[in-house]
Design a protein around this nucleic acid. Structure first.
Lengths: 143, 143
DNA sequence: CGTAATTTCATACTAAAGTATGAGGATCGA
DNA sequence: TCGATCCTCATACTTTAGTATGAAATTACG
C-alpha cells in the first residue's frame, strides 16, 4: 500500500517534470524568436512551477491524510480476562482517582496499583487511563 | 479568527511575492552580465517558484484542516465561561488524546494545550483530565 | 503435589501531565 | 484609543503516570 503510493507518486512526479522540461524548451524557442522578452519568459515558468509546487504539495498532504485515516482498527474483544483486582482498579480509575488515592482506598502500595494499571491497559489495548475508561464504557464494563 | 488568518495569509503572500520579484529582478541583472545562460536562469526561478507554490499550498491546507477541526461547533456553553479553544481542548481530552496529540491536531504548541488545560481544570474545579471529562459529562457539556 | 494464575511489592527508569509565571499579539467593545 | 479577554508560546519546575523487570506469597485446580 505504502510502497504502491510512493511508486505512483514518484512516477507522477517524473512525468510532470518531463512535461515541464518539454514546455520549458518550447518556451525557450519562442523566446529566441521573440527576442528580449525575459520578463514574459520568467513569468510563464514562474507560474508553471508555482502551480507544480502547489500540486505536488497537495498530493503529498493528501497521501499523508490517507495514511492517518487508515490507521483506525476495530478490535472489539469482550473476553478480556480482567481479574478481580484489575476490575476494582479500573472502577476507581474511572472515577477520577489518582494511583495514590486508589492505593489508599484498597490499602495497597502505589506500585501494586501501577502494576494492575499496566496489565489493565494491555488487556484493554489502550495507552492510558483516559482511553481505558472510554473503552470500558464502550465495552459496557462500566455503567 | 477567520479574518485574522486571512489577513495574515494575504500579508505573508504579498511579502513573499515582493521578495520573489526582487530576487527575480536581481537574477535578471546577473543574467545580463553572464549572457546566454537561459537554462541557469530558468532553473533557478523554477525551483524558487516551485518551493513557493508548495509552501503556499501547505499553508492553505493547514488552514483548511484547522477550519475542519473547528467545525465540531460546541454550542453548549453554560455559566462556566469556557472559551472556544478550551472547549475544543476539553473535547479532544475527553476522547483520550494526549496533550501532544491535541497540539498536533490543532496545530498548536503543547505549551498552549497545557495552558488551556490548566485554565480548564480551574474552571471545572477538578484536578486532572480524567476528572475533567467526568465532570463534563455530569454537566452535559459533552455527549 | 505441582503448576498456573493472581496478587503483592519493589527498584529504576522514561514519559506525560500539570503548575507558575511572564510575555506578546489579536480582537472587541466602550 | 484604552482596557479586558482570549490565544499563543515559552521556560522552569514538580508531580503523576506508565514501563520493564524481578521476586515472593497465595490460591485454585487437575
Amino acid at each position: 500500500m505504502t510502497k504502491q503510493i510512493d511508486v505512483k507518486s514518484t512516477i507522477l512526479c517524473g512525468i510532470s517534470m518531463a512535461i515541464l522540461l518539454f514546455i520549458l524548451k518550447w518556451l525557450e524557442l519562442r523566446f529566441v524568436v521573440f527576442d528580449h522578452l525575459f520578463e514574459v519568459y520568467a513569468a510563464i515558468i514562474s507560474v508553471i512551477f508555482m502551480v507544480l509546487g502547489a500540486w505536488l504539495m497537495h498530493n503529498f498532504q493528501q497521501r499523508k491524510l490517507e495514511k492517518e485515516n487508515a490507521k483506525q482498527e476495530i478490535v472489539a474483544v469482550p473476553e478480556l480476562g480482567l481479574s478481580q483486582r484489575e476490575m476494582e482498579v479500573l472502577m476507581l480509575m474511572s472515577q477520577g482517582y489518582t494511583n495514590q488515592q486508589i492505593a489508599d482506598k484498597l490499602f495497597l502500595s502505589i506500585h501494586t496499583i501501577k502494576t494492575h494499571g499496566s496489565n489493565l491497559f494491555v488487556k484493554l489495548d489502550v495507552k492510558n487511563r483516559t482511553q481505558a475508561l472510554i473503552k470500558a464504557k464502550e465495552l459496557e464494563i462500566l455503567e
